[in-house]
């Protein structure tokens, strides 16, 4: 019984690794196929000996002005949206976790509803509003919706963290004469920092992944983020979809995510699981 169990877990382990990494290996492999081989048709997992491009696709992709702009846009927009969203969420989550006030249920229900909101329904009114306000195809035009849609996740994650903070310390501070606000700022913020950090990573992931807003609220490289740029990506030859070039772009766009995952794996798992399920 024990033995089969161990074998089962070993097999499961291998299956999980294959599941997670095979498609990643595939896209990396594809990014090394040469453009000529792709046009001529080059089936199979690995590039053929004559059909390998080396790092040429990466050179091409990084030399592509549009792609560079898209990376710049994505990083800029996502970082700003993440920072602002986390600040607002921290304030809200503190209130939800610690204070009694009227309208708390409303806030929580709103957050839940927005997490379920079909973003495509917002495309037409937002486009109309943004063009009236003059923020269509600008960074701010994407930052605002990214913030709104990451707030629920950030609020949940953070309030879950806040509940596990030893509140006696805040009470002690309050007994010492600090106001609620001072107690919040001096005592809770440092303790909550890891939670804030987790919320920031999850928020960044969400914004980085967005596609619907990215294609519908931008129209040039002034604000177009990576997912939209990839879907519109054109190589030197517009009639041949540059599959291997796209793959190289895809790999480049995944590097930040993999770095974040490698460094903050523990925090992300904790954040994901505490935020959504609280038994």
């Amino acid at each position: 019984m024990r033995g089969t169990n161990k074998v089962g877990i070993g097999v499961g382990f291998i299956l999980i690794m294959v599941w997670c990494l095979l498609p990643v290996a595939w896209i990396i492999s594809l990014s090394f196929k040469s453009q000529e081989a792709i046009t001529a048709g080059s089936p199979g997992f690995l590039p053929t000996s004559g059909g390998s491009a080396g790092f040429q696709n990466y050179v091409d992709v990084l030399n592509d002005e549009q792609f560079r702009r898209a990376i710049f846009n994505s990083i800029g927009i996502c970082l700003i949206a993440t920072a602002l969203s986390v600040i607002l969420a921290t304030l809200a989550a503190y209130a939800i976790a610690r204070l009694e006030f009227k309208g708390k249920r409303f806030v929580l229900t709103t957050a839940l509803a927005i997490a379920m909101f079909p973003v495509v329904s917002l495309v037409s009114p937002l486009f109309d509003m943004w063009r009236t306000l003059g923020i269509y195809d600008t960074w701010i035009g994407l930052i605002i919706p990214y913030m709104s849609f990451t707030l629920p996740l950030a609020i949940w994650t953070l309030s879950a963290f806040f509940r596990e903070i030893p509140w006696e310390m805040e009470q002690a501070a309050q007994v010492d004469g600090a106001t609620s606000w001072q107690a919040f700022r001096k005592v809770i913020v440092p303790l909550a920092a890891p939670g804030v950090f987790t919320a920031a990573i999850l928020t960044f992931f969400f914004a980085w992944n967005d596609f619907v807003f990215g294609i519908s609220l931008t129209s040039t490289e002034a604000a177009r983020p990576i997912p939209a740029a990839l879907s519109f990506f054109v190589g030197a030859d517009p009639f041949n979809r540059p599959a291997s070039l796209l793959a190289a772009g895809a790999v480049v766009s995944t590097i930040p995510i993999i770095l974040i995952v490698l460094v903050f794996q523990r925090k992300i798992v904790a954040g994901l699981t505490s935020g959504a399920v609280k038994g």
Binding site: R131, Y136, S219, T220, E221, F232, F233, R241
Partner: peptide, 23 residues
């Protein structure tokens, strides 16, 4: 020059949205 997407349909969409925004 500013580059538009590859397909004619996408090109139209991008331009039309800019023009509808009176850009």
């Amino acid at each position: 020059t500013q580059l538009l997407p590859a397909s004619a349909t996408d090109q139209r969409t991008q331009l039309a949205r800019r023009l509808a925004a009176e850009d």
